[in-house]
Design a protein around this nucleic acid. Structure first.
Lengths: 204, 204
DNA sequence: ACCTGAACACCGTTCAAGT
DNA sequence: ACCTGAACACCGTTCAAGT
């Protein structure tokens, strides 16, 4: 059944999330839609498996995670998640339906919480820190999937007349921001906040 | 056509985003699906309008935004967005498809950028700060919509055997974190980061 | 000019019937 | 036991036909 998920992920990568249809997948498998129900309980289950297949691609530098300070480790994990999600940006729409809870997603969370707790974070703050980072990375990935209408669409709206947005226009003179730049800016913001809250904790 | 959008938003609030069907909306309007195409170019357009109707509900305390320091103003705007999205949490799945670009969403962005720029942020950093905050709030709202399976589902996975997640188990002994608490923790993290980056800027 | 029933081409899901 | 064609109840979208 891992092979079916692999084919499904290929399909999403190549044709987008909305092209992931039981019929289209059955065709690629040279099988029938009814057969897919032997492996998945339905389309939602299939989507969950595809999402977890993406999380399975996260490869951490375990030596780095083990030997670095907690902030470097956490940032490394977050950047790895971002990289993998960027590589499979078409899967983003599949993530929205529910928070990833597949085995690979859970193991990644375990790893993160472990780093935080062994570095003196309280359970509550470790959970908070992980939740915030995970939501940021996932929320970023979900929205980054639709980067077409980012510049100047949807200006002519029906009843509202012309919008004038002087500051928006002024500020956009710097041109569009690269996705990776935007991501790292926000990530550093949160790491700053975590560091300042966690200042002067003795090494274990 | 604002009335149709209002009915559509009611429908989403009451029955969820997947219940927003051209047929179900036509039934509520005592009309036909074909008639809806006089007002919207299709389901995607309808969804965009519903999302912007939610943004239209954001009511800022203009006196507070005007007179407070930039960080208080920005946090106030972010919290307002969060409150409104929480009130209409069923619309979250409609947001994923594309970044909100309706007139009300654009005006809210204009207001945010205005606060940042008049307080000495460079155009680049104002854009970055807004993008990070907006993605955080939206990403949070999107994922907050599915809070059912948060505790302990999806443990028994087919081929992988039992997962043991000791730190996860230990850390979850503090119980589930309230959504609002989680949101505020992350927001404060980012505000801390923004403040430290923007330290010692003279008032205009 | 405005509206709509009915059709078209899809979709997820199910099940009797085949092997 | 395993697979599948065909059906069912949907969906978005279109259009000839009505008023």
């Amino acid at each position: 059944m891992d092979r079916i998920v692999g084919v499904a992920l290929d399909l999403v990568d190549e044709e987008g999330a909305e092209a992931l249809t039981l019929r289209s997948l059955a065709t690629r498998m040279q099988s029938s839609t009814a057969t897919l129900y032997r492996h998945f309980s339905g389309r939602a289950d299939l989507a969950r498996c595809v999402v977890d297949a993406v999380f399975a691609e996260v490869r951490l530098d375990e030596a780095l995670v083990e030997t670095s300070t907690w902030d470097v480790s956490i940032a490394h994990i977050a950047e790895n998640m971002f990289t993998v999600l960027e590589r499979h940006r078409n899967v983003a729409p599949l993530i929205l339906s529910e928070i990833p809870m597949g085995p690979h997603a859970l193991r990644l969370r375990e790893r993160c919480l472990s780093v935080l707790v062994t570095n003196g974070f309280t359970p509550l703050n470790a959970l908070r820190a992980y939740a915030t980072l995970a939501r940021y990375v996932l929320g970023f990935a979900v929205q980054a999937a639709s980067e077409a209408a980012s510049s100047g669409a949807a200006y002519r709206i029906e009843g509202h007349g012309e919008l004038d947005l002087p500051v928006t226009a002024y500020v956009q003179s710097v041109g569009p921001i690269a996705l990776a730049d935007e991501f790292h800016f926000g990530l550093e913001l949160m790491m700053d906040g975590l560091r300042s809250r966690h200042a002067r904790t003795p090494a274990p």
